[in-house]
Simulated assay, not measured.
Amino acid sequence: MAKSSAKTDAETGPQADAGTPRERYRAQVRAEIKQHAWQQIATAGASALSLNAIAKQMGMSGPALYRYFASRDDLITELIREAYRSLADTLHATAATGADLTVLAHTLRDWAREDPHRYLLIYGTPVPGYHAPQDVTGISDEIMKTLLDACAASLAARKTPPPAPAFLAEHREWAAGHPAPPAALHLALTFWTRMHGVLSLELAGHFAGMGFDSALLFAAELDALAPR
């Protein structure tokens, strides 16, 4: 996957020179490994990711590469962790401006379209045999909490909140302790499934040749869920 060569302030500022030469070299090699991993994912999918193939591309031995990532799952975890962290921070920054649910939805779509393989790694077909560690689950909980805040605010602005399925009052483990009322839980679940449904189909190319603008479909689904 081609990446921009432009450097951010964080990459060129004082922090870029932090650490010993050995630490900087290690960070550089790990970054190169991840770049090759993304190229493999773009070509053949995450399930085909091979550390030995990356080692060959980099002119390294397999054992040498394993000093940077202990296993394929270790590398996948790093990619997934960074993807979730990026989305969580992006949505949080948008929400901090006072943005409503509609703006958050379009922020999600923009983030997904910016790098479809990154999106599909975390919301596409699960990698067989892979289980995310607890800290990655915690980052995904941050995303859901931001969404639940927006859903609760959206419903608070309505004169008559819509009814919610009764079971949501009893089964709210997925809400990560958020105090949102059942109606907000229902809106969040509906929003999450329908927005991701449209995005996943769009990014996987399933709308190609159907003769409509997927952006308009996304907007129509959103308007049905969160009318202005």
Rank of each mutant, 00 (worst) to 15 (best):
Q28W: 15
Q28V: 11
Q28S: 15
Q28P: 05
V29Q: 04
V29N: 03
V29C: 07
V29F: 01
A31V: 08
A31K: 14
E32M: 13
E32A: 13
E32N: 12
I33E: 01
I33T: 10
I33K: 05
K34Y: 01
Q35C: 01
Q35R: 13
H36K: 07
A37M: 02
A37K: 06
W38V: 03
W38C: 07
W38K: 08
W38H: 10
W38A: 12
Q39E: 04
Q40A: 02
Q40D: 02
Q40I: 10
Q40C: 10
Q40E: 10
I41H: 00
I41L: 04
A42Y: 03
A42C: 07
A42H: 05
T43F: 14
T43L: 14
T43G: 09
G45C: 00
G45H: 05
G45W: 02
A46R: 06
A46S: 06
S47V: 14
S47M: 06
A48V: 09
A48W: 08
L49W: 00
S50M: 06
S50A: 00
S50I: 02
L51V: 08
L51C: 06
L51P: 00
N52C: 10
N52S: 12
A53H: 13
A53Q: 11
I54D: 01
I54R: 04
I54H: 07
A55V: 03
A55E: 07
A55K: 10
A55I: 09
A55L: 01
A55N: 07
K56C: 01
Q57R: 12
Q57Y: 04
Q57N: 14
Q57L: 13
M58S: 03
M58F: 02
M58R: 03
G59C: 07
G59W: 02
G59M: 06
M60K: 03
M60L: 15
M60S: 10
S61G: 14
S61Y: 08
S61C: 09
S61A: 11
P63Y: 11
P63H: 12
P63I: 13
P63E: 09
A64G: 04
A64L: 00
A64T: 08
L65D: 01
L65V: 01
L65H: 02
Y66I: 00
Y66S: 07
Y66L: 08
Y66T: 05
R67S: 11
R67A: 12
Y68D: 06
Y68F: 08
Y68R: 10
Y68M: 04
F69V: 11
F69P: 03
F69L: 00
A70W: 06
A70V: 04
A70T: 15
A70P: 02
S71I: 11
R72E: 00
R72N: 08
D73L: 05
D73N: 07
D74V: 03
D74H: 02
D74Y: 05
D74C: 00
L75T: 05
L75V: 00
L75K: 00
L75R: 00
I76G: 05
I76N: 09
T77L: 09
E78D: 15
E78C: 14
L79T: 06
L79M: 03
L79H: 00
L79G: 02
I80A: 14
I80P: 05
I80V: 15
I80M: 14
I80F: 08
R81Y: 05
E82L: 12
E82K: 14
E82M: 11
E82V: 12
A83V: 14
Y84F: 15
Y84A: 13
R85I: 12
R85A: 15
R85S: 15
S86P: 09
S86G: 13
S86R: 12
S86W: 11
S86I: 09
S86T: 14
